[in-house]
Computed example of a mutant assay.
Amino acid sequence: MQHPFKDYQEFVAEDQPLAPLTWFRLGGPAAYFAKPRSIEEMRGVLNRAHEAGIPSKLLGGGTNVLVREPGVEGLVIHMESPFFSDVTVGEDRIKAGAAVPLTALISQAARSGLAGLEILTGIPGTVGGALRGNAGGRQGAIGPFVSRVTVLDSALELQERERDDLSFVDRGSNLDEPVILSAEFELTPEDPESVVRRMRRIWIVKKENQPYGHQSSGCIFKNPSADISAGALIDQAGLKGTRHGGAEVSDRHANFIIAHPGAKADDVLHLIDQIQQRVWQQFGYELELQLRIW
């Protein structure tokens, strides 16, 4: 059979391992794997996938993705630096490409004396993933700071989504276009030292409560509501430290699963099922995944 991406072989590979690109470091390969270096290459490879009936997925920082053992039967597009990671700082705003790590965006905003995004300190991933999932924590979420998002729409046309057209909910948004390219954030000018100090305080608190030195992802489940924590429910269900194969519910924060050496994606999936069943049986809450399973 002819290679469906023969015209794009300069940046499309076959049978590419995905585990090294995710925080869990688990799972199988992508049948096809693209690293486009421009919007034109992004549009071209997505068009070709559509024509060939090949499903496509976008991979950013890999912080909230678990790849199953067989891998992904389709095209995985990896947005990476430097091609989708420009950052431009203005008087009261900052614009960032979708591949910019959220941590880098927060640091640059703080050092430039722009306040607001520091409440997201300690949240992993890229700007694109953060926007799609309205990343946030107890202090707030990214959504309220967004003034404009540039996307490729379903016809792969470049579109500007303005604030009035955007909707952000708990760990979700209406940004359902195939590709988020960049975003502009409206922030508050403030003394850089004050912003950096606040950022460091939040970081210290986060690190005290999250697992460290292990292979894990971001939080596994969404909180059922603003005042009910998924981690607290899992803890109260007595599941902290529960292990299956090489996967373990973190004993520091129960909404994290750690993959020990030798773990398989199936071990993590087994723990997810176990947690959902136990929390439903004991408390009547149906925990919804924040983690994306490929």
Results as ranks from 00 to 15, higher is better:
residue 270 H to R: 13
residue 179 V to T: 01
residue 201 R to E: 15
residue 201 R to M: 11
residue 127 V to S: 04
residue 27 G to I: 04
residue 124 P to R: 10
residue 124 P to H: 09
residue 94 I to M: 05
residue 24 F to P: 10
residue 44 G to S: 13
residue 120 L to H: 06
residue 75 L to F: 07
residue 175 L to N: 06
residue 113 G to I: 08
residue 177 E to S: 12
residue 27 G to S: 13
residue 112 S to F: 05
residue 204 I to Y: 02
residue 16 Q to M: 09
residue 239 L to V: 11
residue 84 F to G: 02
residue 61 G to Q: 01
residue 285 Y to Q: 13
residue 100 V to W: 03
residue 159 Q to K: 15
residue 181 L to E: 05
residue 59 L to P: 02
residue 183 A to L: 08
residue 139 Q to A: 11
residue 76 V to F: 00
residue 14 E to V: 10
residue 280 W to P: 02
residue 140 G to A: 08
residue 24 F to A: 14
residue 100 V to M: 03
residue 153 D to N: 15
residue 260 H to I: 00
residue 72 V to A: 04
residue 56 S to Y: 14
residue 8 Y to L: 11
residue 16 Q to W: 08
residue 135 A to W: 09
residue 47 N to G: 07
residue 38 S to R: 08
residue 161 R to G: 03
residue 270 H to L: 03
residue 147 S to F: 06
residue 144 P to N: 11
residue 202 I to S: 07
residue 83 F to S: 08
residue 127 V to F: 07
residue 265 A to G: 08
residue 282 Q to I: 09
residue 29 P to R: 10
residue 114 L to M: 05
residue 66 L to R: 08
residue 195 V to E: 12
residue 228 I to T: 15
residue 2 Q to W: 10
residue 4 P to R: 06
residue 227 D to P: 09
residue 243 R to T: 12
residue 214 H to F: 14
residue 280 W to T: 05
residue 259 A to H: 11
residue 73 E to G: 12
residue 87 V to Q: 04
residue 44 G to K: 07
residue 211 P to G: 15
residue 210 Q to G: 08
residue 84 F to W: 05
residue 122 G to C: 09
residue 247 A to I: 12
residue 268 V to G: 10
residue 104 A to F: 01
residue 193 E to F: 08
residue 187 L to I: 11
residue 272 I to H: 10
residue 227 D to V: 10
residue 43 R to N: 00
residue 77 I to N: 02
residue 157 E to P: 01
residue 114 L to E: 06
residue 60 G to L: 01
residue 152 L to A: 05
residue 137 G to H: 03
residue 178 P to S: 04
residue 261 P to H: 11
residue 253 H to C: 06
residue 234 I to A: 13
residue 42 M to F: 06
residue 200 R to G: 00
residue 47 N to R: 09
residue 225 S to M: 11
residue 20 P to M: 11
residue 284 G to V: 07
residue 283 F to T: 12
residue 222 K to P: 02
residue 121 T to G: 04
residue 100 V to K: 02
residue 180 I to V: 15
residue 78 H to C: 04
residue 180 I to R: 00
residue 238 G to A: 11
residue 283 F to M: 13
residue 109 A to D: 04
residue 222 K to I: 03
residue 48 R to M: 04
residue 285 Y to W: 15
residue 69 E to F: 13
residue 268 V to S: 10
residue 136 G to T: 04
residue 179 V to M: 03
residue 99 A to Q: 03
residue 157 E to N: 13
residue 56 S to F: 15
residue 190 E to T: 04
residue 88 T to K: 11
residue 53 G to C: 10
residue 275 I to H: 11
residue 22 T to I: 12
residue 49 A to R: 03
residue 95 K to F: 00
residue 97 G to S: 04
residue 272 I to G: 09
residue 117 L to G: 02
residue 246 G to N: 05
residue 19 A to M: 07
residue 29 P to K: 12
residue 117 L to R: 03
residue 169 V to S: 14
residue 283 F to Q: 15
residue 17 P to L: 05
residue 177 E to Q: 14
residue 3 H to I: 05
residue 34 A to N: 01
residue 165 D to N: 14
residue 32 Y to F: 15
residue 281 Q to N: 07
residue 17 P to H: 05
residue 64 N to W: 01
residue 268 V to I: 14
residue 147 S to R: 14
residue 271 L to R: 02
residue 193 E to P: 01
residue 73 E to I: 01
residue 163 R to S: 12
residue 270 H to D: 02
residue 160 E to G: 07
